[in-house]
Amino acid sequence: MEEYIPLFLTKYNYWVYITLMMIGLWAMIAKNNLVKKIVGMNIFQTAIILFYVSIGAKYGATIPILQHGSGHGHEAAVHAADYINPLPHVLMLTAIVVSVATLGVALALVIKIHQRHRTLEEDEILEQLRES
């Protein structure tokens, strides 16, 4: 057990994202209400965003925006170690947009389902479908 403690302490970012992701997955599979499933889907996607952003972190580095005022070519050399990794942030901007878009379409579908069945509980909808 002892050897796992440093593992946990130095890599806690992964543990956090996995926990969140599994909460989302659980909600998507086990919840009965369609809106709760959508909430689970969002937690699931956000966990992945958290994972990517945590990749970009670097000890002793600052946000990836260079100093103002210096014309290009004249400033002191920029060291990559002084700035955090910008790429995961760029990728996650895309993933955030995708999750917003998915959320919008999912809610539109839920409204259509509600218009037809007047309920959002999955078991009640399936009951109605069996009867018809």
């Binding site: 130095t10 890599k11 806690y12 970012n13 945590s54 990749i55 970009g56 972190a57 670097k58 000890y59 002793g60 580095a61 990836p64 050399a77 920029v78 060291h79 990559a80 170690a81 002084d82 700035y83 990794n85 910008p86 790429l87 995961p88």
Partner: peptide, 20 residues
């Protein structure tokens, strides 16, 4: 790699080019 490790592959391969 550990959290915040400046020597992780992700921080060494492609991203330094962007920063510099």
């Amino acid at each position: 790699p550990d959290w915040g490790d400046p020597a992780s592959p992700a921080s060494l391969h492609v991203s330094p080019h962007y920063v510099e």
